[in-house]
Design a protein around this nucleic acid. Structure first.
Length: 421
RNA sequence: GUGGACGUAGCUCAGCUGGUAGAGUCCCGGAUUGUGAUUCCGGCCGUCGCGGGUUCGAGUCCCGUCGUCCACCCCA
């Protein structure tokens, strides 16, 4: 045996036993998104590096130190997407989908960020992403949030909390940022190491600090809501009124800022107390300037992304898919061919039951154990004795009942009767 | 990127102050001729994460490295 090859750090295999949760999430989101009028689309996993620099922001953690960037054979700088919004907008622009249109779109797939792996944080992770383009008002903001709230309900997830904030227009945000930097510079000596670093890059993130020593300093800092422009205030008030009307609980958190530069006005984040430190399961916001920034006709937009690994973790134990309806036990090598033939005949029949044939041999005892473990409703036993008489033995595995025999020629119909009873 | 804990059969783990690896489970076979639980018997499975060092001798001590987990950081 030669030496094994390890998986790439932070990149996980999803094994058959874990798929039930993923499939449940995928099925429920697909149905729900469609019901709200969102259409699916798919984009490449690789984009030009410039796309992410321009959208996410050159001085964000993601762009500065977390991107999988490489030069391809043609000499282009390409990057494995660290998030979905930029690529989706690029695709909408590239394909001429905007032109004043109102679009509701969703996509899902792997994203890549070179972070230190931790529970709920992986280097390849999966997001489901929703984007609504061309809707300026707070109505879409409210509907999008209502959709996510309904998603948790459908999935049976209860330990979640919604936080909400408005960052205002880029101009208002910039003005606030200046005030904030000035304030923290005055108190630079009391800043911790992380906050000093953030002061130059993303000073708003200082507000998010978990360091208790910073609490009083942060409490006295200029507050973002005081610097909001009138239109943003009105937008936010209408959003809140709509959420109230829909009975969606939320908490306004003036210190909720996002790590991506493109957000404006509404930002929101769903968190849970059930996952440890990586507690954000879905977050997003409005990005009215982003389409223009990427070279498209100025179009308002709002979107959000949910982390599939994290949500699947919250689902807990999802019952596995049902086993086959029948399991064919092959008594003796001489019956192998006939067993395959029988299975194919059954699959050809109008009833088309799900059939597993025992493959790879094994004693009768072992085959019965496999039949039991497969979850099959009925076991069929086919051996030389049965073949000679033109029958197959049938034994119920789940319900009480005795073993019987049915003619091979009528197998499909007779089995259908037994399975329906 | 920083700090801490951990890394022994496919899986869950035991292995005290260093003496040359063990249990349960899983899988396979058997316990009267072709029948799933349980029980019993037998079989299969390990370069003790990897690489150095100390020692007569290391799974057990030291260093490094890789990985996992937790927190910081970041974020979905």
């Amino acid at each position: 045996m030669s030496k094994g090859i390890a998986p790439v750090r932070g990149m996980n295999d999803v094994l058959p036993g874990q798929m039930a949760g993923w499939q449940l999430l995928e099925r429920v989101t697909r149905e729900l998104f469609s019901a709200y009028g969102y259409e699916e689309m798919r984009m490449p996993v690789v984009e030009h590096t410039e796309l992410f620099k321009r959208s996410i922001g050159e001085y964000t953690d993601i762009v500065e130190k977390e991107m999988y960037t490489f030069t391809d054979i043609g000499g282009d700088s390409l990057t494995l997407r660290p998030e979905a919004t930029a690529g989706l907008l690029r695709a909408a622009i590239s394909n001429g989908m905007l032109r004043g249109a109102r679009l509701k779109l969703w996509t899902a797939g792997p994203m890549f960020r070179h972070e230190k792996p931790q529970k709920g944080r992986y280097r390849q992770f999966h997001q489901i992403d929703l984007e609504a383009l061309g809707f300026p008002g707070p109505d879409i903001d409210a509907e999008l949030i209502a959709l996510t709230a309904r998603l948790w309900k459908r999935l049976g997830i209860t330990r979640v909390r919604l936080q909400l904030n408005s960052l205002g227009t880029p101009a208002a945000r910039a003005a606030y940022r200046e005030k904030l930097v000035a304030y923290f510079q005055q108190h630079e000596s009391s800043l911790d190491v992380d906050s000093k670093r953030r002061l130059g890059g993303n000073p708003l993130r200082i507000l998010d600090s978990k360091n208790p020593d910073m609490r009083s300093l942060i409490a006295d800092a200029p507050s973002l809501p005081d610097y909001l422009d009138e239109e943003s205030k009105a937008h936010f008030a209408q959003l809140r009124a709509s959420l109230d009307a829909c009975g969606i609980e939320y908490q306004v958190n003036p210190r909720l800022v996002r790590g991506l530069d493109y957000y404006s006005r509404t930002v929101f984040e769903w968190t849970t107390d059930a996952l440890g430190a990586q507690d954000a399961i879905c977050s997003g916001g409005r990005y009215d300037g982003l389409v223009g920034l990427l070279g498209g006709e100025s179009t308002p937009g709002i979107g959000c992304a949910l982390g599939m690994e994290r949500v699947v973790e919250l689902l807990g134990a999802v019952p596995p898919a049902a086993g086959p309806q029948v399991y064919v036990i092959v008594a003796g090598e001489s019956a192998e061919r006939k067993a395959l033939e029988l299975a194919e005949t059954l699959r050809d029949s109008p009833q088309a039951p799900s059939v597993h044939v025992n493959l790879g041999g094994g004693s009768i005892k072992t085959q019965f154990r496999r039949a039991d473990q497969s979850g099959a409703t009925l076991a069929l036993i086919l051996g030389e004795a049965e073949i000679e008489r033109g029958v197959v033995a049938v034994k119920p595995l789940r319900a009480e009942g005795v073993q019987s025999e049915i003619p091979l020629a009528e197998a499909a119909v007779r089995l259908a009767g037994l399975l329906n009873s």
